[in-house]
Amino acid sequence: MHPISRSFIYFSIFLSFAIFSQSQEFIFPNQEQEDRFYLLTNEIRCPKCTSGSIASSNAPIAEDLKRKVYEQIIDGKTDLEIKNFITDRYGEFADYRPSFESWNILLWIGPGIFMLIFGFLFFREQK
């Protein structure tokens, strides 16, 4: 499913990002790289914005990071290498996909555990 941004009611905070500071052109030799670019920029959180990915922001830092992602895709870096490049500099905060490590495992499997326990209690409760 598309991780592209969207929103209900945009108020004042949005303004600062709505002003287009610069728009860059990213030309890719093939569609596969272009698709990867949009997937990655949608998963990287804009470090200076209140909320939203770098794909959905025109803040200067978001534009710079998009350029970095673009350059690294052209250089043939893998998605993992690009993500690591970003998180090394801006922390886990910049990655919208929490890693499947240590405490984060609880986040990822939490819903499954909840469903099993709740389902068990639900059917037992009503008996």
């Binding site: 598309h2 991780p3 592209i4 941004s5 969207r6 929103s7 209900f8 009611i9 945009y10 909320s51 939203g52 794909a55 959905s56």
Partner: peptide, 22 residues
């Protein structure tokens, strides 16, 4: 309506953002 508005007006081509408010 909120979803349609975002799609037609925000100009990002998305209809659902998983923004905390949504």
């Amino acid at each position: 309506l909120g979803s349609a508005w975002a799609y037609y007006e925000l100009g990002w081509g998305g209809y659902w953002f998983w923004d905390p408010v949504e």
